[in-house]
Every structure is written in C-alpha cells, then in structure tokens.
Design a protein around this nucleic acid. Structure first.
Length: 630
DNA sequence: CGAGACCTAAACAAAG
DNA sequence: TCTTTGTTTAGGTCTC
C-alpha cells in the first residue's frame, strides 16, 4: 500500500550528519544501517519521508535546537544537532512536552496577533469616529463582528487542531506543509483571516495597515521560544485539576535556556515577535528593535493576557482530553490513571541519567501529568549511544513490557520506531496473549496495533519479523488446529541474548532511526494525546512482591538491560543467567501436539491468579521481580 | 580485530 | 496463479 513509501521515512533522514559521532551513526545503524550506509545494493534508501520528514530547514532546525534543547545539550554541538540527534537526546516524552510547548506558544502568538488586530480595529473605529467621518456605522459594526467571529473560529480551529492531532496520531506532515508540524496552524490562519471570516476582508485590510502580514506570522510562528516578556504570566498555570502542566513548566525552563548569543525572539535575521518580521542584522540591532518596537506597553500587556487565556484554554482542553482518554482507557481495561509511576525507583535512575548531560531535569519535573520519562527507555535509551552506555545502572533499563506499558500511547500514535528488537517485540506480543501463542498474522496485527511506526512502515518489518521468528530458537512454531502458531521459549530467549551492555545500542539505534524529524512531528501529535500516560504505567510495576516469579519470563529487552544479576559493578553480563529464574515456562521445541495441549490450558504458568488484569500487567509483574532479585 | 546481536534485503519453497 | 508463511543466506552496523 501507500504505506510502504511512508514507511521508511524514518530512515530517510540518514542525515545524521555524523556530527555526534556514534549517535548519528546509530541513527541509521539499524534501520538505515545497512541500507543507509552501504545501501547494500538495494539503493532502497527510501527518502520518501514525505510526511514525517518535516522538511524543516537546517536553519529552522538550528533555531529550534538552540531554543529548545537544554543548554548543555545545545552546547554539545549546536550546529551539529540534527532532528534525530535531538531526539536521541530527548526521550519521546520529552519531545512531546517540547512539542506541546511549541504548540502552545504558537497558538498564543496567533492569539496575540488577533488581539493586535482587534485593538487596531478599535483604534480605527475611534479615530474614524473622532474624525467625524460618517463612515457607515454598519460597516464598522460588521468589522467588529467579523473579528469576533474570527476569534471564535480561531479558537475552534485551535481546538480542532488539538483534537485532530490527537486523533490522527498517525498523520504526519502533509506533503505540502513546508516545515515542521507547527506550520499547520499558521497555515490555516491566513485562510481564516483572508478568506473565511470577513466578507469585506476587513481583517486583511487591517492587517496590512500595520504592515503586518499574517503570512508572515505564520512564518514567525515557528519561533518556539517564549517571549520573555510574555512568559511571566504563563509560568504557573495549573490544570483545573491542579496539576501543573508540562507545558508551563517547560516553558519556564526554556526561558532560561536561552542560548547565549541568541534570542528566542530573534532568528533568521529577523524579529520573531509575532507579526513583526523586521530584519535585524545582528542581535544588537534586534535588541534595540525589541526595546523600541516591542516595549512594555498596553499592547504587550494585552498580549500577555491573551496568552494567558490561550494557555488556560489549552489547559482546559488538555484536561478534558485527558479525562476522555482516561475514560477510554479505563473502558478498554487499562487501569485508570493515577500517576503513581513516579514513585518507582526508575524515576531515580532517570534522574541519574542527567549527569550524562543528555537530559535535563526540568522535564522530569513536569512529570505528574505526563510521565515524560519512561522509566526504562527514557534514560536507558538515551544513553545508549555515547558514554552513557557504560553506566552500570541496570535498573535503568526496564523491561520491554514496562517500557511499552508506559509509552504505549506514544508508540501507538507516534511514528516512532520502538526501541526494541524485533525479537523482543515478538516475544512481547506473544506473551501478552493469554495463550502465549500467536499466529504470524496475529503478530503482525499486534505490531501494527501497538506501534504507529509499523502501521506505516509495512514494507520490511514483516519480513524482519518472519526472519526473526525463524532465526531465533526462542521462537517455536507450533502446529495448531487452526494452523501454526508461534510461542516463546523463555529459556532460549534468555539464553539467546547474552547480555549486552546495558544501554542497548541497537535499541537506541532503532529508536533513533525511528526518530527522524517526521517522527518528531508525530511525537508532537502524539504529545497532544499524551497527557495521560500514567494510565499505562501499569501498577504492576509497583507490585513488589506480586506473583513475582511465577513466570519470570522476562526481562526484556530494551536492550538487554534488565539483569538479574547483582547489578553492582560490572554491567557486563547482565541477564545472562537464566538459572536464577527457574522459569522456563513452557514450550521448548516439542512436538506440536504436546505443546498445544499444554498451552491452551492454564495460560502457561498462569502467573498470578490474583492479579488478573491485562497481560501487560502480568508481564510486568513477572519481570520486575526479576530485576529486583538482582 | 573478532565475536555477537541486530537489521534489512532477497531468493526460495511450501501451503493455502 | 497469487499470496502468505517460513527458511536461509548475505551483507552491514555497532558494541564489547
């Protein structure tokens, strides 16, 4: 299907401008790896990425990076950072937060604009009235009406966008959207202003009057950072439910992260103040301009107010959607949220990761609402690349199931390649079923159901799945009544993967490859739908003693991390030792029949009678203990 | 540098 | 005959 083309998108950005050494390398490593580098003949390379590859210009990107990436990160090599690298640095959740922030900012800028126009109209009215110009009152009234309608429309538009983005999930960029996801809104706006709303194009007129051009606004809207002047009022919003929003906290932090030598409102040689595209040769000039043209005055103040409103609106919207999501999840048998995940040890480890200089705390601070940091992945994967790899903290790496559980929504919606190996995913898929067995097709389905990436990238992964199934001994094919099904031989599985280092390079690599800018875009979208991650954080993780070992089936992957062994010093041979896990549940190359008999019955190992609940939970419980054992 | 794990690509064969 | 499912082989990358 068409999907195919879209598929490879991710790797499309082989860009990995080898700037950040290994990281970029890894970027194409897995997915692009062979193909990308050596192209192994196939020349498949697929650059497509029409959708995901936001096509953000390098300049924009740089701008983006400078403003959004935590200082330390940015300093690593600002000019070298590619979207991918950025994504390497930021965990999916972080990206989400980031994107959320950006969207909010953009919206707010738009609002400011509108406000501005409105003020102008008022002015116009006043002057005209004073001048005694008998301008037909009606006309003026119409104008104002038109503006109000536009405001309404705009608000609706915003909300719609939010919703759309939320629901689209998969949708990345429309081909014609020149740069980045954030263009979406701005692009719509001009229309709104010029076309739709006002009969007599009043909007456009007034816009021109001030020499402003909404199109320009659209362009400037890409300026992500919060205008300093504006940030104050935004800094401490809380959701109706009292939860601080990621949005705001991030914004706060970002305002402090300004890159020296740059200004959030200055980019591409022009003033990024909403609606102002004044060209400024250098920062100095810009500052001057800023102080003169955008000084603290009524207008600015008004803009701040508008921003506040926008933010509040967004927050309300967010809260609503979160609620809805929770309800949906609850309905779909996922536990209702309650952000407990943060009490997990993982959190600690996450914090631990900062020293690497790869991630910054601010984000984690925003935790409550959006568990931004997937315990395992968040940090683990981040490190994968560089020095971090070495970290001995195995606790870091959480089992795939937990990782998955926590980022379930994310992967489901974002076109991000999951940082797991095919083998671990397959295994996960199989273990998630009551019978612990799946047909190939069911496995496919699981993949597509769980990961947006696989929904879009149909092309090769199926082959890879089959390949993995056949290749790894841990996957046992069993002839079933209804055909052949695949099961997992835990013992083999454990054996199979001699503990690699903790960071799991490939995973990271995978993740990275999956994180092309397009992915980022997707993440952005996903971010919106993301507010209630916690839901997924299966409580199971917290269950310490729960049914632990019945089926220690797993420590999964995410790289090989979890290890049973006393994690202490050497991070080397982590999970190698299956022995400790007396598990080996089932299977094991046996005659299909035998297998069959066994499997269907009590779901193998019937891990925990009590802790019913979704398979995921089961798994989590199974795994965690393992980790803790160590 | 070699070993291993992983990944993608692709050729083939057997079934349905 | 076409598609799906499985198996194998080959060539690459990356980390240890």
């Amino acid at each position: 299907m068409m999907v195919e083309s879209a598929s490879e998108t991710i790797r499309s950005a082989p860009s990995g401008q080898n700037g950040v050494g290994s990281l970029s390398g890894q970027a194409d490593g897995s997915s692009g790896g062979a193909t990308g580098t050596t192209a192994s003949g196939t020349g498949r390379e697929v650059t497509t990425g029409a959708d995901s590859n936001g096509e953000m210009s390098p300049a924009e990107l740089l701008h983006f990076q400078q403003q959004q990436v935590p200082v330390s990160v940015a300093m690593m090599s600002p000019q070298m950072l590619t979207p991918q690298q950025m994504q390497q640095i930021l965990s999916p959740p972080q990206l989400q937060a980031l994107l959320q922030q950006q969207q909010a900012l953009m919206l707010q800028q738009l609002q400011e604009y509108y406000k501005k126009q409105q003020e102008q109209l008022h002015l116009q009215l006043l002057t005209q009235q004073q001048a005694g110009k008998p301008q037909p009152k009606e006309a003026l009234g119409n104008k104002q009406l038109a503006f109000q309608q536009q405001l309404l429309q705009m608000q609706q538009l915003q909300q719609q966008h939010l919703l759309n983005l939320q629901r689209q999930g998969l949708v990345s960029l429309q081909p014609n959207q020149a740069s980045g996801p954030l263009q979406t809104l701005p692009q719509d706006l001009p229309q709104l202003w010029k076309g739709e709303g006002a009969p007599g194009q009043p909007a456009e007129d007034s816009v021109k009057q001030e020499g402003l051009d909404l199109t320009g606004t659209a362009a400037t809207a890409t300026s992500f950072a919060a205008p300093p002047k504006v940030s104050p009022p935004l800094s401490h919003h809380t959701l109706p439910n009292g939860q601080p929003t990621v949005l705001t906290s991030r914004r706060d932090s970002s305002s402090h992260e300004e890159t020296p030598g740059s200004h959030p409102l200055y980019g591409h040689g022009e003033c990024k103040w909403p609606g102002c595209e004044t060209l400024c040769e250098d920062l100095g000039q810009f500052i001057k301009h800023l102080n003169t043209e955008h000084a603290l005055d009524d207008r600015s103040t008004a803009q701040c107010r508008v921003q506040m409103q926008v933010v509040q609106q967004l927050e309300i919207q967010l809260a609503k959607e979160s609620e809805r999501l929770q309800a949906m999840m609850a309905h779909l048998h996922m536990r209702p949220s309650e952000p407990k995940p943060f009490s997990q040890p993982v959190t600690v480890s996450a914090a631990d990761s900062f020293p690497d200089g790869l991630v910054h705390p601010p984000t984690s601070a925003a935790a409550p609402v959006t568990p931004l940091r997937p315990p395992g992945l968040g940090s683990a994967s981040l490190h994968g690349g560089g020095p971090a790899r070495r970290r001995s903290s195995d606790k870091f790496c959480s089992p795939i199931s937990s990782e998955l559980a926590q980022n379930h929504e994310f992967y489901k919606n974002a076109d991000v390649r999951p940082p797991f190996t095919y083998a671990s995913l397959i295994r996960q898929a199989i273990l998630e079923t009551p019978d612990r067995q799946l047909t190939l097709n069911e496995i496919y389905n699981w993949f597509t159901r769980m990961f947006a990436y696989f929904r879009r990238n149909t092309a090769t992964w199926k082959n890879a799945v089959r390949h993995n199934l056949s290749l790894h001994k841990c996957f046992v094919r069993v002839e079933n009544v209804k055909g052949a099904v695949w099961t997992v031989d835990e013992r083999e599985y454990q054996k199979r993967r001699p503990p690699k280092m903790t960071g799991s390079p490939t995973l990271v690599k995978n993740m990275i490859s999956g994180l092309s800018y397009g992915a980022l875009n997707a993440s952005y979208q996903a971010a919106l739908a993301e507010s209630s991650f916690p839901l997924l954080n299966s409580p199971g993780m917290l269950n310490p003693g729960s049914a632990s070992s019945l089926l220690p089936l797993s420590h999964d992957d995410v790289g090989a991390p979890v290890e049973p062994l006393p994690s202490n010093g050497s991070s080397s041979p982590p999970r190698l030792s299956p022995p400790q896990y007396s598990h080996q549940v089932q299977v094991k190359e046996e005659p299909a029949e035998a297998e069959e008999d066994r499997q269907p019955g009590p779901p193998l190992g019937a891990p925990n009678p009590s802790a019913s609940g979704p398979p995921e939970d089961r798994d989590l419980e199974e795994e965690l203990p393992g980790e803790e054992l160590s």
